[in-house]
């Protein structure tokens, strides 16, 4: 009995340690990648405004979207569990959502660039909690970004570029 209790603790602490170190490393890597790609994609402009500049000119349009599901790690879950007792900012989940949203926007921009677009208007970002598993655990969040990409028709050289 006492030995089994001990085993439980070992498993718990191992998961916690794995979650802490692997989770931190993964998060640092993800943020590094996000920052790098945000710079690369800085030329693809994304606006939340409804109306495109030069709204009277006919343009090519395409709906572009990007999405990602990011799961939290064991350590974050544990810390968040403690947080719900005390209230206040849940910093560990704030970064999770931040990563998911920025990644979704980046993927949307990547899709726009792949098809030769440099401007996206009416960008909407939404996020949904995707809970899996049977114990109601496994917090994972989906971020989804979409918008309308615009480019002037290539044939007509007289139109100014957006």
């Amino acid at each position: 009995m006492g030995w089994l209790d001990f085993l439980d603790w070992i498993i718990f602490l191992t998961l916690l340690a794995v979650g802490y170190f692997a989770g931190r490393a993964a998060e640092a890597r993800h943020y590094a990648s996000i920052r790098k790609r945000e710079q690369e994609l800085a030329k693809v402009l994304a606006f939340a405004t409804k109306y495109p500049p030069a709204a009277h000119l006919p343009q090519h349009t395409r709906l572009v979207a990007g999405s990602v599901v990011v799961g939290s790690d064991y350590f974050k879950q544990f810390v968040a569990g403690l947080r719900t007792l005390l209230g206040g900012r849940m910093k560990s989940y704030e970064t999770l959502l931040d990563r998911a949203r920025r990644e979704a926007v980046l993927r949307m921009k990547e899709e726009a660039r792949r098809h030769g677009y440099r401007l996206i208007v009416n960008v909407k970002v939404e996020s949904t909690n995707i809970t899996g598993g049977n114990r109601g655990g496994l917090p994972a969040v989906e971020a989804f970004a979409y918008g309308t990409a615009l480019k002037p028709p290539a044939a007509d050289g007289s139109q100014r570029a957006v």
């Binding site: 979650g19 989770g23 993964a26 990011v70 799961g71 790690d73 064991y74 598993g133």
Partner: peptide, 11 residues
């Protein structure tokens, strides 16, 4: 979910 990160299957 132990180590965190993107869940590609769900994406």
């Amino acid at each position: 979910n132990i180590v965190g990160g993107e869940l590609k299957g769900y994406t």
